[in-house]
């Protein structure tokens, strides 16, 4: 299990990285933490010609609150965000979800934006981004664009990022006063990919529920209080999961109904 040969590029600044990306297109792969990409390269499932390592780029190291959102640079590790002192106040849902990503050791290399770029259907961060209606900031030599979460992930391990583009930051909206959130995940073991992960954020009027692990990408639905079982059930069906060796589609739907209910109740309790 050894990677195929590749060129390794360690650009000194973002412009160099973008120039290289423009030049090499889909034969280049941006790598920040490499916790998913590295494993796939070792198995030769991914065989890029050139690996562009952005972990050291100064421009991408920041966590800051900008225009009501927590803007997380593309080189920020999951662990660094988890240790950010303001996180629990600014966005408690993220603080709850981050410890579920992989393990202590992988969170110290794996980045927030890398997880979004990888777009694994069972990952926590794509679910958080979709649920919170965050945004992804993409850069290329052609310019900068901000893509809403709903438009960013287009399928399983597929995103709207063009071949010459890379994520430079992710934007997670700061939690609003009067809202509450909750999160539950069911995995086979601690740290495994979610069989079902359910997150919710709500206020007095409505609640938004997001589910990961079931379909090709996170599913999100807006519901109003009180949430009827039928609505939750329809959502569970609409996600359209399939059987795999770890869980049946039926079990996943059941979890969406049951864990979904737990999460909804938790948000309700927190609001009252």
């Amino acid at each position: 299990m050894k990677p195929a040969a590749f060129d390794y590029a360690c650009p000194d600044n973002l412009d160099e990285a973008l120039a290289l990306l423009a030049d090499r297109g889909d034969r280049a792969r941006v790598c920040a933490g490499g916790q998913s990409l590295g494993a796939m390269m070792n198995m030769r499932l991914a065989t890029p010609d050139v690996l562009i390592d952005i972990a050291g780029l100064r421009e991408l190291q920041a966590i800051a609150v900008v225009d009501g959102a927590i803007e997380v640079g593309a080189a920020v590790t999951q662990d660094a965000l988890l240790r950010w002192p303001e996180l629990v106040v600014r966005q408690p849902l993220l603080a709850r979800m981050l410890p579920w990503i992989g393990h202590y050791q992988t969170r110290q290399r794996g980045t927030v934006c890398g997880s979004l770029a990888h777009a694994d259907p069972s990952s926590e961060l794509p679910l958080a981004l979709a649920l919170l209606r965050g945004e992804v900031v993409l850069r290329s030599q052609r310019g900068r664009r901000v893509v809403a979460a709903a438009d960013f992930q287009t399928g399983m391990m597929a995103t709207a990022t063009a071949d010459d583009e890379m994520i430079v930051a992710a934007r997670f909206p700061v939690a609003q006063a009067g809202t509450a959130s909750a999160f539950h995940e069911v995995a086979q073991r601690h740290g495994d990919f979610a069989i079902v992960a359910v997150a919710a954020v709500g206020d007095k009027h409505a609640i938004r529920l997001g589910v990961g692990g079931v379909a090709d990408m996170p599913g999100v639905i807006d519901l109003t209080w009180p949430v009827a079982d039928a609505a939750l059930n329809d959502f569970a069906w609409a996600l359209g999961g399939a059987d795999d060796q770890h869980a049946t589609a039926r079990y996943r739907r059941e979890l969406v109904r049951r864990i979904g209910r737990r999460v909804i109740e938790e948000v309700g309790d927190a609001l009252s």
Partner: peptide
């Protein structure tokens, strides 16, 4: 596994009100 125990325990599943592909 959790999924297998669930399959053993769960009764009839509520149908969706929306037709499913």
């Amino acid at each position: 596994t959790r999924s297998r125990l669930a399959e053993l325990m769960l009764g009839e599943e509520p149908a969706s009100t929306v037709p499913q592909i």
